[in-house]
Simulated scan of single mutants.
Amino acid sequence: MNRRAEAERRGRRAETLAAWWLRLKGWSILGRRVRARRGEIDLVARRGRTLAFIEVKQRASDEAAAIALDAYRLRRVAAAADELAPRFARPGDDVRIDAIYFVPGRLPRHLANIWMG
């Protein structure tokens, strides 16, 4: 399997794990790999009045995870979330962008509201 295909496989696995992690925390998964003109959202999830557009990253180390979602990628996620919000949001919802990081040997790290644009 080539490197690109292997990375794709690992990414899908991390998204599946993130979806299960969120379900265990009381979230409902509304969409996976939701496409918009301006990008793609890994997971769309809801818990109560909170709607979260979630970017999932799996990296080999804490250092690699810390730089996995740079300003450019975050702007693309925010643009896609802005485009998709009308499809998923309800009146009065708190809409935010989250990230979930996976590093071997650690529990998933869920960072809430990472975009303040």
Rank of each mutant, 00 (worst) to 15 (best):
Arg3Ile: 12
Arg4Ile: 11
Ala5Pro: 00
Ala7Glu: 13
Glu8His: 11
Arg9His: 12
Arg9Asp: 12
Arg10Thr: 01
Gly11Lys: 06
Arg12Gln: 14
Glu15Ile: 12
Thr16Ala: 15
Ala18His: 09
Trp20Ile: 10
Trp21Phe: 15
Leu24Pro: 00
Ile29Tyr: 12
Leu30Thr: 06
Leu30Gly: 14
Leu30Ser: 10
Arg32Thr: 09
Arg32Asp: 02
Arg32Phe: 06
Val34Glu: 09
Asp42Lys: 02
Leu43Ala: 10
Ala45Arg: 05
Ala45Val: 05
Gly48Phe: 07
Arg49Phe: 13
Arg49Met: 11
Arg49Asn: 15
Leu51Val: 06
Leu51Asn: 07
Val56Gly: 13
Gln58Glu: 12
Ser61Gly: 02
Asp62Met: 07
Asp62Val: 12
Ala68Ser: 14
Asp70Ile: 01
Ala71Phe: 08
Tyr72Pro: 00
Leu74Asp: 04
Leu74Trp: 02
Arg75Pro: 00
Arg76Ile: 13
Val77Leu: 15
Ala80Cys: 11
Leu84Cys: 02
Leu84Asp: 05
Pro86Ala: 11
Pro91Leu: 06
Asp93Thr: 05
Val95Ile: 13
Arg96Gly: 07
Ile97Tyr: 01
Ile100Pro: 00
Val103Phe: 05
Val103His: 03
Arg106Thr: 01
Leu107Glu: 13
Arg109Thr: 05
Asn113Cys: 11
Ile114Leu: 11
Ile114Asp: 03
Trp115Tyr: 15
Met116Ile: 08
Gly117Cys: 04
